[in-house]
Design a protein around this nucleic acid. Structure first.
Lengths: 146, 146
DNA sequence: AATGAAATTGAAATTCGTTGTCAATAAGAA
DNA sequence: TTCTTATTGACAACGAATTTCAATTTCATT
C-alpha cells in the first residue's frame, strides 16, 4: 500500500520538526488532485475560489516545501513561470512534449535517449546530475482543428 | 565569404525600414565577440564599462531585435534570466551541457537523439517545431578540483 | 486542558529581470 | 538642409516570486 502525497509530506514535516497546518493539508491535496504541471499562481487561483482565506505566499511556500522534500519538482518551460509536478514515482524520469497551440503537456520517456545522453556527457567529461528534454510542437488535436 | 552578424543585422534593419545606430552597432559587435550564452544584463554590464552612455533598455531592445531577425535566440536555463546565443549557422541545431558548479555551458549535437525525438513526437501525434535538451552535471575541471 | 516557545500565517512591501512610457535626439530619404 | 519617423536613455511599471512582520496557530510539555 503506497503512501499518498499528503502522507509523505506529513512524514517529511515531522522529520524536520515542521508543522502540519490546515492550509498545508489543503494545498497539498489540491496539488495532488491536479496532478501535474501546475504553477503556484494556477494553484492559488484554484484554491482561492473555495478558500479565499489562504494567501498566495502560503501556496508558494508550500510548493517550495514539497520541492525541498523531493515530493515535487519545479520546471521552467520558458513561459515566465515555474510549473510544479508531483514526483512520487521518483524512479521513472520523464521528459515533455509541449503543444505550443493549446499548452497541453504530455510526458514521455525513452530509455535509448537517456542512454545516449549518458554517452554524450561522458564524452565531454561531464557527470550527469539531471537533464531536461522538452519537445515543442503542435499536438494532434490542434493540427486537426486548423 | 560569409557575412558577419553585424552585416546580416544591417540587412535585416534595411529590409524592415529600421535604423542602424551607433548603439546597435556596438551592442551587436559586443554580442558577436562574446559569442554565446550571454544575458542582457551581462552584456549591458560589459558594455557599460567602456560606453556608459548606452542604457540597459537599449541592450534589451537590441537583443530582442536580433532574436526577431532570427540572428540570436534566447534560452532559459532556469536560473532566472534569459541567455542569448548567436545563431548564424542556423542549420546546426545544438543542445547544452551545463556545469552546475562553475556555470560553464558546452554545446553538443547528436543526430541519433534528434531522430529519436522525431520518432517520439510522431508516436504521440505531435509535429515538432522546436526542442531543447539540457544536460546538467559537473564538468571535468570541477570534478577534478573537488 | 493549559502553557509557552517556536513555526506559520496573510497582507503588504520588496526583489529582480524585463518591458513600457515619454520627451529629447538622431537617422536617413527627399 | 529639412522633415518624418525611429530610436534613445532615464525612469516608471510590470509580474512572478520572496521577504518582512505582527498576529495567530501548532504541538511538546506540563
Amino acid at each position: 500500500m503506497k503512501k499518498s502525497l499528503l502522507q509523505q509530506f506529513e512524514d517529511h514535516l515531522r522529520s524536520q520538526n515542521l508543522r502540519l497546518t490546515d492550509q498545508r493539508k489543503l494545498i497539498v491535496n489540491s496539488f495532488a488532485r491536479k496532478k501535474g504541471h501546475v504553477s503556484a499562481e494556477d494553484l492559488y487561483r484554484h484554491i482561492h475560489k473555495t478558500t479565499p482565506s489562504i494567501g498566495a505566499a502560503t501556496v508558494y511556500r508550500t510548493l517550495k516545501l514539497l520541492a525541498d522534500a523531493g515530493l515535487a519538482s519545479g520546471k521552467n518551460f520558458g513561459d515566465g513561470y515555474v510549473r510544479f509536478e508531483c514526483c512520487l514515482q521518483r524512479s521513472a524520469h520523464h521528459d515533455h512534449l509541449i503543444c505550443t497551440r493549446c499548452g497541453k503537456i504530455v510526458e514521455f520517456s525513452n530509455s535509448t535517449i537517456e542512454k545516449l545522453q549518458e554517452t554524450v556527457a561522458r564524452d565531454h567529461g561531464f557527470l550527469i546530475t539531471d537533464h531536461s528534454l522538452d519537445i515543442y510542437g503542435v499536438c494532434q488535436d490542434c493540427s486537426v482543428k486548423q
